[in-house]
Amino acid sequence: MLEIINLHASIDDQPILRGIDLAVNAGEVHAVMGPNGSGKSTLAQVLAGRDSYTVTAGEVRYCGRNLLELSPEERAREGIFLAFQYPVEIPGVANIYLLKAAINARRKHRGEAELDAMDFLALVKDKLKFMGMDEALLYRHVNQGFSGGEKKRNEILQMALLEPRLAILDETDSGLDIDALKVVAAGVEAMRSPARAIILVTHYQRLLDYVVPDRVHVLSQGRIVRSGGPELALELERRGYGWIDAGEAERVGAAP
């Protein structure tokens, strides 16, 4: 489904990604791990189409197409979803309004009729219940005044509604207490399907206790330096990132 070949990207002429190679098939869950500054979030944002990053070399194929040619909204409509590490606040815009606009943009793109208010509400309430979220969150302004946990759940709610083909979760587990982590993990696990690929970008192993990945990749200084099965994450947890890239990457224990 996704094939990344020798991807280089920089911001303000500062190279961040220095040759990423990664292939993700439908039905697979991949974890991308690595110390702070290794390029994990950059990779997630480049895939979603953030234009503050410049792709300087390499290519990305998504479902047989050149992904880098598409605008962020086209990527979203084609089934890519990015759960933000820091979900953005939009004052004055009701959460439900954003959700509806997002769903209908996608449906329109696929040539489907837009959902009317009733159908939409029924769908949202169903997902909301699954995520253990209060209905009141629908009518509050997008992410404004949400707690850290509410913001992350809201991202997973959006993912559940948009049913992406490729979901990229950027440190969705960070800042969550254990209960919230379980809810979020259950939300992700429920999304697992033979038709869908999921990339979990994470600093810690603990999310992977609940969502067991098929493959684990370790990023350091903009390159994938090691790939393996779920056991790689456990080994990382035990030995720290210093084991991967002694001296240059900070230790897991020192990370915030």
Binding site: R50, L82, G92, L162
Partner: peptide, 22 residues
């Protein structure tokens, strides 16, 4: 904000309009 909306499939014009109206 713009990128957030775009990454949900909402085009930039609609996104700006949504943000400003909010």
């Amino acid at each position: 904000q713009l990128f957030y909306c775009q990454s949900r499939g909402i085009g930039p014009e609609d996104a700006v309009s949504m943000i400003v109206n909010g």
